[in-house]
Design a protein around this nucleic acid. Structure first.
Lengths: 132, 132
DNA sequence: CTAACGTACAACCAAATGGTTGTAGATGAG
DNA sequence: CTCATCTACAACCATTTGGTTGTACGTTAG
C-alpha cells in the first residue's frame, strides 16, 4: 500500500464531506452497497435531489462510489475512505506529537514502504503558509 | 477517561473546522501555545480579522483554546482534540467494520471504562434518520 | 500621559452550501 | 408499446462562509 500523501484539497473535501450529519448517516447505511439513491432518499426528510447532492459530495470526497444496476444507482461506502481520513489526522498530528513513535508504528505496519527518512528534522516543522 | 459520546453537532463542528487548509495549518503551529492571534495572522495572506474568525471556528470546535497574556491572546491547540476527531471516525467506522476487534482495542486501552455491552446486536445497526 | 499594539466586533460583500421544484432521458415492468 | 421509476441536472432561493474594512477599547512601552 502506497501511503499516498494527501494534498490539501483532498483533505478539505474529505473533512467537509464528513462535516454533515446526513452524509455521515449515508456512509453508515451504504457499507453493504445495497442501497440505491432513491431508496436512500426515503430515509431522510428531504427531497430526492437533496440526497443526490449529498451523495455527490461524498463521491467527490472519495468516500463513496456508485455502481449502476439496471436503472438504479447503488451507493457503496469505500471502507478504506475512513482510513484516509484517519491518515489525514495522523499527518496533522505527526506535525507535533509522537513523531517517532508514529513513524515506528507506520514502519511496523507497512514494512518495505519506508521512505528514506531525512535525518535531523527536529523542531524544523513549522509548515509554510497555505496557498488559500 | 470517560468515553463521552460525541453528538452530531459536535462532530459537525469538529470536521467543519478541520475542513480548511488555513485552519489545519493554525492547528499545527499552535501546539506549543506561544503564538498570539496577531503573530499568527502575520503568517497568512489575509487580514487579522479573518484569522481571528478562523481561530474562533477552531475554538467553537474545541480544537483550540485562548489564554490571555497581557494584551496578547495566546492560541494553543488542544492535543486531545485530534483524538476526539479520531474517536468520531471510530464511532462512524464501528457502525460496520471490526466492531468486535475495535471494542476489544478500546477495552484494552481503557480498562474499567467498559460500558456493559448489549448482547446480540447483529445486523441491527441501521441508525435512524438524522434530524437535520 | 500618550502613542502604538493587540483584540473584539459590527457591517458589508461575494461565493459556496443546502435545500427546493421542474424538466428530461434511460431503464424495467406489465 | 406504454407507463411508472430512477436518475441527472438546471434554475432558483435563503443561509452560511470566508473574506474585507472600519471602529472601539484595553494594555503596554516609552
Amino acid at each position: 500500500m502506497v501511503v499516498d500523501e494527501l494534498n490539501d484539497e483532498t483533505v478539505d473535501r474529505l473533512f467537509h464531506a464528513l462535516a454533515d450529519t446526513t452524509r455521515r448517516d449515508i456512509l453508515r447505511r451504504c457499507v453493504r452497497g445495497e442501497l440505491s439513491v432513491s431508496r436512500l432518499a426515503e430515509a431522510y426528510p428531504m427531497s430526492f435531489a437533496a440526497v443526490q447532492k449529498h451523495v455527490a459530495v461524498l463521491e467527490r470526497a472519495g468516500l463513496v462510489s456508485k455502481q449502476r444496476s439496471g436503472r438504479e444507482q447503488l451507493v457503496r461506502t469505500d471502507p478504506d475512505a475512513v482510513g484516509r481520513a484517519r491518515q489525514a489526522l495522523d499527518e496533522l498530528e505527526s506535525a507535533w506529537r509522537g513523531r517517532v513513535d508514529r513513524m515506528a508504528r507506520l514502519l511496523a505496519e507497512e514494512p518495505g514502504t519506508a521512505e528514506p527518512q531525512v535525518p535531523g528534522i527536529e523542531e524544523n516543522n513549522t509548515p509554510e503558509g497555505p496557498e488559500r
